[in-house]
Design a protein around this nucleic acid. Structure first.
Lengths: 201, 201
DNA sequence: CGGCAAACTTAACACTGTTAAGTGAGGTAC
DNA sequence: GTACCTCACTTAACAGTGTTAAGTTTGCCG
């Protein structure tokens, strides 16, 4: 039951699925719809992807890879103040989600539906290790004092996750000025995290 | 097409739906399953609820009402320090979600799937106005200085939302000690928010 | 030409949410 | 006492879903 390798058809499927998913939402797009959209029978899709979830997963892989590439750039900038790096990373995370809200939604849907955190889990762990390095740089520079860097990382994660998810999912709510809210939330949190150094100023 | 009023059958449906939804997840429970579980035909459910979504919505209404009741208590405690009240409210929000993770998941699913924020929207707005009152009390007590209370409210919202959602949805991740993470995240954020007063200490 | 493998399709299974139409019991009116 | 009517419920079906076993076409190789 080996899946067929990359091919023109496979790419057509991915492209059609992407367009339809983003236009109508994952749950409103059936395998048949995708198939007829590209002029193939529904079963053809199963030659290239195990199932609908796998197809969605492949799509998100691309989105996530994009983010990781940008994230690596932030990580490279060693000369910048660690606090600024951390802030830049958080901003990147949020803006990446906000610039592709539907993709971010798909991602959340995926690991919400998924019992385990399959492929995208490795990406998640990469973000985690990025954040941990950034936090440890801050600790090394004596900019911040936390008992356990993991706790700090997880707190940071919840903040950027909360921002991105709420702004993408409930975009119709009140948040008119995304930029203002994002800045204020991140800065307030970082102020709290770096309070030890702020006091001395 | 008026729906039948409250009745023994209606309650049986609600109870069965609750058990099944929480045990197997909303998407894995069909109307037929619920029906056979209580020994009725599937169509009977449609005499009491418009559709599956409506049934889910009714279930969540109960969960949310529970929270609002507890929240009112926090709001009543006028003699407590406003900062402590705000912290208590945030804690309540998170703990409420964590104590009924599946319900919280249902809630997120509901307003994720829903184009508009229907019934549960009014509850959401109630939380919003609660938070706004709490923030304004802090401002009045000169404990905090923010340009616009709405921004602060929304920042607070994103933090508690992020914490609760991430801990319920990705409970299998790393967060071993929920309590530690919740405390650290909320306190870090509040430290940032109340930084003006902390400086003077 | 025979055989074979790759790419694709047909037809079906076992489901899903939802609805139009039908059934039977209980009570009321004459 | 029978006709009627309403309420609570069921039967049977529609139109769709993800997914798969089996069958078909096409082109290549010996």
């Amino acid at each position: 039951m080996e899946k067929l390798p990359n091919s023109e058809v496979r790419n057509k499927i991915l492209q059609a699925a992407q367009e339809l998913f983003l236009a109508q939402g994952v749950s409103h797009v059936s395998m048949r719809k995708i198939a007829t959209c590209i002029g193939y029978s529904p079963t053809t899709i199963y030659l290239y992807f195990e199932n609908k979830r796998d197809l969605l997963s492949a799509l998100i892989q691309d989105y996530y890879s994009d983010f990781i590439m940008q994230a690596e750039e932030v990580m490279q900038a060693q000369d910048v103040c660690p606090k600024a790096s951390l802030r830049a990373y958080m901003m990147l995370f949020v803006h990446n989600g906000l610039s592709k809200p539907d993709y971010y939604k798909l991602m959340v849907q995926l690991f919400e539906a998924g019992e385990s955190y399959d492929n995208s889990g490795s990406h998640g762990q990469q973000v985690y290790s990025h954040l941990k390095i950034l936090v440890e740089r801050c600790i090394a520079a004596k900019l911040v004092c936390v008992p356990n860097p993991n706790i700090a990382v997880q707190a940071i994660w919840t903040v950027v996750f909360g921002l991105t998810t709420l702004l993408t999912i409930r975009s119709g709510f009140i948040w008119k000025e995304h930029e203002v809210l994002v800045n204020h939330t991140i800065d307030t949190f970082l102020n709290g995290l770096f309070i030890n150094t702020n006091k001395e100023q």
